[in-house]
Amino acid sequence: MTYWRLLNFELKRLALPLGILVVITTILQLYNAYSTANKEMDYAHRLMKVEHLSTMEQYVQAHGYFSYSSSFDELSWLILSIFICAAFIGFYFVFIWYRDSLGRHPFMTRLLMLPASRRNLYWAKLTAPLLVMLSLLALQQLLLPIGDSIYQSIVPSEAREDVPLQMLILINPVLNILLSPNIVALLLYYGTGITAVIILYTGILLERSYRWSGILAGLIYAAAAIFVIVIPLIILQSNYRYLMMETQLTIFYFVLLAAVSSISVWFSQYLLAKKFTI
């Protein structure tokens, strides 16, 4: 119960930034579709004038089709929107532990005194930004067909080659990770990301518990954790790579992620319960 209340509380505080990010993402993505389509049409019309082509069909025959996907394989407004969201969430993963400790009104004192296990607080602070991240990814997914239809409304059908939405994702290096259609790859990316956040939280809690020496301990801890996780990658680079099959390595990687996450969560909760210092 306390967890849900705290989660609700954290989400409410995130509502405004989330709203702003939704607006930014939507504007940038739709502008991306709109401007790409217009640029292409301008370009086509200019060439048609120069080359005295009278119809789109003639243009397409001479120069090939246009596609919405062309705006996905390069650095674009789309990448910028993803970058802004990622930067904010990355920042917030740290800020969420400090916003209540800094300033004139140390709300963290109140949160730590709530008469329920502090584990609830930990989970709420972990899941709230993750949920915001998932909502932004869902928005990203949702904007793909909308952008596509804007594009289609500007570029006539005879001049464009329609590609399936899945294709758009595959073409873009960032979307290919964030919205990967391959379920194993998706789990791999998200598992790695969430583990990274969990390790980061342990580092922050070490700092909050021991201040300067905590930062040092946090860095050492993070280095050790990262080393453990990359063991499969080291194997992959080494002469021993033939000892394991790729699926085995993947499973090994997942096991390591789970182990490191579990230890980190346990350690973080111990720090929050016993060592956290206001």
Binding site: G103, R104, P106, M113
Partner: peptide, 10 residues
């Protein structure tokens, strides 16, 4: 515990 600072968000 009644702190000497307010412990609620501003």
């Amino acid at each position: 515990y009644v702190s000497d600072q307010l412990t609620m968000p501003g």
